[in-house]
Amino acid sequence: MTATKTDAPVTTASDEPADATAPVGSARSERLSALVQQHGALAVLVLVSIVASFSFDSFATGDNVSNMATGSAFLAIVALGMTFVIVTGGIDLSVGSLFALGGVLAAWGSRHGTLVALLLPLVVCGLIGVVNGLLVARSRLAPFIVTLAAMLGARGLMLAITDEGANTYLIGKGSFLAELGQGTTLGLGNPVWITLALFVAGAVVLRRTRFGQHVYAVGGNEDAAALMGVPVARTKIAVYTLSGALAGLAGALNAAWLASGVTILGNGMELDAISAVVIGGTLLTGGLGYVSGSLVGVLLLKVIQNIINQIGSLDSSYQLVVSGAFLALVVIAQTWLGRRRQLV
């Protein structure tokens, strides 16, 4: 890193050492770039939503918004965990399988009551996350490979529980679990409120706790973090555990919403979650990211999907094309911003 001249005032007291500061570049352009990186997705989301609500009569209706919110909730919970993993510089490919596994476990456990139905997926998927974390942090294996293995293993486990998908467990109507998934509060589905609560908690944890500092430090410079006394391995294990548990919880809530543990869900969900996190301004290389951005990223993906559905004449396959193109654009913009800020 090199220093250039600054227009910052040099205030040197008579008996104190000289000013040793030399900020890089202009602070204003740095702040602007940071702002765009953090809130660019939000601006696009607002813009797209405004255009859509003028273009399609059915877009800005209460029903549609409520449906989109509920439809986004489950992916959002997965993306929340993924944000923590990516900020440490890792990646978690197992979340799609854990989502499906969580759903099946919740439906299977629902016959023993809501508590079991919620705890079982949390614990099992959390434990798989622990194993991911141990292999990444202690055995120093690449997160990509470790979580790819977990993705295959977890899907296998799910198929084993359901007799290769032949057996779909149902969640009884009227149970508390069904109410949790299907009921509404103040006009929005319960999963939406749960998701919002989780995001508020996640933001506080990431920005306002020591653990959150450790997550950023590990992703920013692992070696330096270790020398500064950050428990690197423990932090990594924690984020993979969190990601696994949240994927399991999302699956459980999704099952409650659908009233059954559908086995074919969650395929490719890990990639949607990664897309949402990256669109939200989190650097894939780690060290920089925002929980709120991931929520915006999920909503943006959902809104685009909704718009394509509204157009009607477009084959829904084009959703993927548009999502892919959009992701590419975001990554290009991020890289450009990052280079401007000399992050990469």
Partner: peptide, 9 residues
């Protein structure tokens, strides 16, 4: 931190 010069860092 990276916005500081090496000396300040």
């Amino acid at each position: 931190l990276r916005t500081l010069g090496v000396g300040a860092q």
